[in-house]
Amino acid sequence: MNNSMLYLRHAELLRDKVPSFHDYPFNLPVVRTLERLVFEQQVTFLVGENGTGKSTLLEGVAAAWGFNPEGGTLNFSFNTKSSHSGLYEFFRIARGVKRPRDGFFLRAESYYNVASYIDQLDAEPNDDSPRIKDSYGGKSLHEQSHGESFFATFLHRFGGRGLYILDEPEAALSPLRQMSLLVRMHELVQQHSQFIIATHSPILMSYPGAEIFLVEGESIRSVALEETEHYTVTKAFMNNRESMLHELLGEE
């Protein structure tokens, strides 16, 4: 898939429509200066410290595309708690020439609500339709560990030729499972899929050819993996564990 074939090409903030840059979420430094977020690769990462606004940006992009702000497919319309921002209403989305066949918005913090919604729909009498959980491996996501339910979604529900927007998918995954997710991502990329991912995981950020956007203060800039704090801190800690623990814990 070349750049012209991406499903989501950019998200532009309609700055002249924003009522006030003093109110949330427009008062976030990164939103206050945002003009356009451009996607040029099949895999794009948004990284940065907690509180920088990367998840808010991701949620805004997902909702502007048409996903439920709490997560799920385009058909999911539940609302457990209206905690999402109105940022999406001020995004103009540029879509690619081709339309995706599949799509999913995964939010680690509200995935429990997605699992509950699936169980609720499957409990409703409907003899003509297959159970929704069959497309997630055939087992209720609530009957699996948090990590197993995440991975069941990646493995069974994601079907290729899709737009997949993921907010901290590593939250429930062991390092080994994160590497397995890399393998699954690669399979889906080869099936003409596009990923936009907010993450803290250096393992996921290692995906070859991915673009990494560092959200820092008022700026969003493209960086190499080795420039991210996630990589440098993890590498420094593992290579100098004893000295860093001594420094952190102040032990003699």
Rank of each mutant, 00 (worst) to 15 (best):
N3Y: 08
N3E: 15
N3Q: 15
N3R: 13
M5A: 13
R9P: 04
H10R: 14
D16Y: 05
S20T: 14
S20M: 09
F21Q: 10
Y24S: 07
P25F: 03
P25H: 02
T33P: 00
T33K: 15
F39W: 08
F45G: 02
L46I: 07
L46Q: 09
G51A: 12
G51P: 13
K54S: 04
L57S: 09
G60S: 08
F78D: 10
T80I: 06
S83L: 14
S83M: 11
H84P: 00
S85M: 07
G86R: 07
Y88L: 02
V97E: 14
P100D: 12
A108D: 08
E109Q: 11
E109L: 08
S110D: 03
D119K: 05
L121N: 12
L121D: 00
A123H: 11
D127F: 11
D128K: 13
D128S: 15
D128I: 03
G138L: 11
G138I: 12
K139P: 00
K139H: 07
S149W: 06
S149H: 05
A152W: 01
T153V: 15
L155P: 00
G160E: 07
P169H: 09
P169E: 11
A171S: 13
A172C: 07
A172Y: 15
A172K: 01
R177D: 14
M179K: 14
L181T: 12
L182W: 04
E187C: 01
E187W: 00
L188N: 02
Q190C: 10
Q191E: 14
H192C: 09
S193Y: 09
Q194A: 05
F195T: 09
I197R: 01
Y207G: 01
G209K: 07
E211G: 00
L214G: 01
L214H: 11
E216V: 03
E218G: 06
E218W: 00
I220S: 03
I220P: 05
R221T: 13
S222E: 13
H230G: 00
H230V: 01
Y231W: 14
T234G: 12
R241Y: 14
R241M: 14
L248Q: 10
E251N: 06
